[in-house]
Nucleic acid binder design. Structure first.
Length: 307
DNA sequence: AACACGTGGGA
DNA sequence: TTCCCAAGTGT
């Protein structure tokens, strides 16, 4: 008597059960994707890369105008590489986390020196660039070059948490289980995989949002584990809210705002006006200098870095 | 692993 | 007003 055929090497997973997500999400994306400049055919790998830097923790609507100015001024990596890093910081404006501007400049220099001025195609080469981590490397490889990579950002993590795992929010930090799920859910076909990456991200950004999710317009609401379970509220430790008022970050922000607007080196006395408490003020300024965001000059003057 | 790192808009 | 959140990275 023969035992029933049973693949012992293949463990039934949530991923295999969720394979039916691809078509509805991709179809939805074809119909509802936003017409964003970095998605246009003429954006190119550099446009995609610039957008990814700017979109790290900053909403699309605030990125849009800065992105347009940036690409108009520096249409190729070599154009940015030829500038002083401080010009990148200035052009970054109020997008926040200005060290990203410094890293984008550094990445442009590395691309110019190591890759002949072309944004590299390989994930490992992208990952080696300053300011590019796991997410951004996968995003550029997928969006700019159509490659097959798991692109796991906060939107995709939330979609998976709900649709597949059945919980309201993903864990605070990305887990190995999430990475495995993302890989398992990735369509085999390269073209489909890159569409899936963009589509699942867009779904999280427009429909399956952190608050006030719009299940009525969701293409996979019928399959969503979280909705099917009655949309149970998040359990466990609350996501630690980041305080801001009174922190060094706030002081650094004020300091840098003054330097960004200044056309000439700024005297220490002018910087001193942005914050009353001298110890914290000095610490914040020292931190900016240590980070390479501010350059001290002789005579107690400060400016954005010349290089 | 936990933290630092900006900014502004919406609920 | 206060709180939450937005396509993360580096240490």
């Amino acid at each position: 008597m023969t035992a029933p055929t049973k693949p012992t090497h293949s463990i039934p997973s949530a991923a295999s059960a969720a394979a039916g997500l691809h078509a509805p999400v991709i179809d939805w994306f074809e119909e509802n994707a936003r017409d964003l400049p970095w998605r246009r055919a003429d954006a190119g790998p550099w446009g995609v890369m610039v957008s990814e830097f700017m979109l790290q923790q900053t909403p699309v609507n605030r990125v849009l105008p800065v992105y347009e100015q940036w690409l108009a001024r520096w249409p190729r990596p070599a154009d940015l590489a030829a500038e002083a890093p401080g010009e990148a910081v200035r052009a970054w404006g109020r997008l926040g986390y200005p060290r990203r501007a410094l890293r984008l400049h550094g990445a442009a220099v590395a691309i110019t020196e190591r890759h002949g001025g072309d944004v590299p195609m390989e994930h490992a080469q992208l990952l080696a660039l300053p300011g590019i981590g796991e997410y951004t490397a996968a995003a550029v490889a997928s969006f700019a070059y159509g490659q097959r990579h798991a692109v796991l950002d906060t939107n995709v993590r939330r979609v998976f948490a709900r649709a597949v795992t059945g919980v309201q929010y993903p864990p605070n930090a990305t887990t190995a289980a999430e990475r495995r799920l993302a890989r398992e859910l990735l369509p085999e076909d390269e073209r489909t995989a890159s569409r899936w990456a963009a589509a699942s991200m867009e779904l999280g950004a427009l429909i399956c949002t952190a608050k006030n999710e719009n299940c009525a317009r969701c293409p996979i609401s019928a399959l969503c584990a979280w909705r099917l379970a009655g949309k149970p509220a998040h359990e466990g430790p609350p996501r630690r809210g980041q305080t801001y008022a009174g922190t060094d970050r706030q002081v650094r922000g004020r300091l840098l705002a003054v330097l960004r607007e200044a056309v000439a080196p700024v005297p220490q006395a002018v910087l001193d006006r942005v914050w009353d408490e001298p110890v914290q003020r000095a610490r914040a300024l020292d931190g900016l200098v240590a980070d390479g965001l501010v350059e001290p000059m002789a005579g107690g003057l400060y400016r954005l870095p010349l290089g």
